[in-house]
C-alpha cells in the first residue's frame, strides 16, 4: 500500500524568536525589516518558505529567514527596536524541521495532533502550535503540504512518529 504522504527532514533554517509588545510601532518596523511582512494575527503565518513570520503567542513571533542571514537580520532587528523592551534570540540550531507532502498530508498530522485539519478549518497560511504525539510542535499549511517544527532534542522522536504515521491506511474523513 502506498504511503499517505512523504516525510522529509529539512536542514536547519534560520529562526529568530521575537518577544515583546506586538502592538508597538518599532516591533512592526523590525519585522518589516527582517522579512518584509506585517504582524500576523493569531494562528497565522505570513510570507513564503524562505522568509516568513508566524504568530506564536500574544507576545511572541517566530521570524524565519535563510540560515546564513540570521546574524545580519538580528543586528538589523535590534537596531530597528532601539530602546524598546523586547527579546531577539537566534533559535535556528534549537529546532528540527520536517516537511510532510502529498494529497493526504493532513491525515498524517491528524493521526498525531489533536487539531481539526479539514481544509475549511485549517487552510493554507494557517499556523498552529500543538502537541505532536508526546512532544510540543508547531506546523503550518502551504501549497503542497505541511512544514512541522519541533525542538531539536526530540527531532529523532518526531521523525519516527511521522514515519510511522504515513504508513497508515487512508481514511478520507477529512476531505
Amino acid at each position: 500500500m502506498a504511503d499517505l504522504a512523504t516525510v522529509s527532514r529539512l536542514p536547519a533554517s534560520g529562526m529568530i524568536t521575537l518577544r515583546g509588545d506586538l502592538s508597538g510601532a518599532k516591533i512592526k518596523k523590525a519585522v518589516k525589516a527582517a522579512c518584509g511582512q506585517g504582524i500576523p494575527v493569531s494562528g497565522e503565518i505570513l510570507g513564503d518558505g524562505a522568509r516568513a513570520v508566524a504568530w506564536m503567542s500574544p507576545d511572541e513571533l517566530l521570524v524565519m529567514v535563510p540560515y546564513g542571514d540570521v546574524q545580519a537580520v538580528i543586528d538589523a532587528m535590534n537596531k530597528a527596536l532601539g530602546g524598546v523592551h523586547a527579546l531577539v534570540a537566534d533559535v535556528s540550531d534549537a529546532r528540527g524541521l520536517f516537511r510532510v507532502e502529498g494529497g493526504s498530508a493532513h491525515e498524517v498530522l491528524a493521526r498525531v495532533c489533536p487539531v481539526d485539519l479539514h481544509a475549511a478549518s485549517f487552510g493554507v497560511g494557517q499556523f498552529r502550535r500543538t502537541r505532536l504525539a508526546q512532544v510540543a510542535a508547531a506546523f503550518w499549511r502551504h501549497d503542497t503540504g505541511f512544514d512541522v517544527v519541533c525542538f531539536l532534542s526530540v527531532a529523532d522522536y518526531v521523525d519516527g512518529v511521522l514515519g510511522n504515521a504515513v504508513t497508515a491506511p487512508r481514511v478520507g474523513a477529512l476531505d
Binding site: G43, P114, R129, T130
Partner: peptide, 12 residues
C-alpha cells in the same frame, strides 16, 4: 482566549 483555537484537553 488568547489564541482563539479550540484546545484539546491534552494540549492543556
Amino acid at each position: 482566549p488568547y489564541c482563539g483555537v479550540a484546545c484539546d484537553e491534552t494540549e492543556l
